[in-house]
Design a protein around this nucleic acid. Structure first.
Lengths: 128, 128
DNA sequence: GCATTTTGTTAACTCAGGTTAACTTATTAA
DNA sequence: TTAATAAGTTAACCTGAGTTAACAAAATGC
């Protein structure tokens, strides 16, 4: 599964909206991502084709199991990177999040594993 | 000066070739970047327009002062990030470089400053 | 229950950054 | 010095990811 940065952002956004509202609307996604409704609508069809979201015409949007699994992974990466930047570089949370949001789409599996190990060690030292 | 990731990669590549050979050829850039000669040729015209490279038709390519200044900054970022990843995450040099090569185009000024501070501290501790 | 407003869709378009193919110009080696 | 090869250019094209504008469907509020 090699998804574009753009598709990853859509999935992540849907995930967050769904977490708070059970499902997402085209307009919510458009607002959160600062893109047009048209762009969202078009992308949703594509994601539906790929089995990542459920949606009928004019209906609301939810992630499929497959879509949710992938989204969870991205979100997890996001948090790990963010925490790593806060801890190692003392970035403040919003600066860390901003950078994590870009990095989550490009770093290697090996790097994300290394980040997870780094965080585990920190937690260990902090007495779990 | 807000350059695309693609343009930054071209500049960086020219910088490296120029370092070793005094100037670059379309074919060198194409080979190093794994793109077609046509793509390089087209991009060089654009960079020339923007005052970043010197080049006459069928002539070789060098960076202008402006182009070199920018390239140097990107290359410096690259090395800082690379070293940061090696030190903080114990990535091996090639893995670090691979990730740095993506990150150099996207991280914030604040983050790169934090990385530089991190590295200074390390150097300090190591007795300069 | 219907008019208004909001939301969603579609079509036609843009733009960056690639490609291939056909061609021209330079370089090289016999 | 010229034929063959390598390098560079140009035109026409493709794709992903966005846009605007016109329209259709749904939701809302009297």
């Amino acid at each position: 599964m090699n998804l574009s940065e753009s598709v990853e952002m859509y999935l992540e956004t849907i995930y967050f909206i769904q977490e708070n509202h059970g499902h997402a609307h085209v307009i919510d996604i458009a607002n959160m991502m600062n893109v047009s409704k048209a762009s969202v609508s078009k992308t949703m069809n594509q994601l539906k084709e790929e089995g990542l979201v459920n949606k009928e015409t004019y209906g609301h949007i939810t992630l499929t199991d497959k879509g949710e699994t992938i989204s969870r992974e991205i979100v997890k990466k996001h948090y790990s990177i963010s925490r790593f930047l806060e801890k190692s570089l003392k970035l403040n949370p919003s600066e860390a999040a901003k950078n994590a949001c870009k990095m989550e789409h490009i770093i290697s599996d090996e790097m994300i594993k290394a980040i997870e190990m780094y965080l585990e060690e920190i937690d260990q030292l902090a007495g779990k």
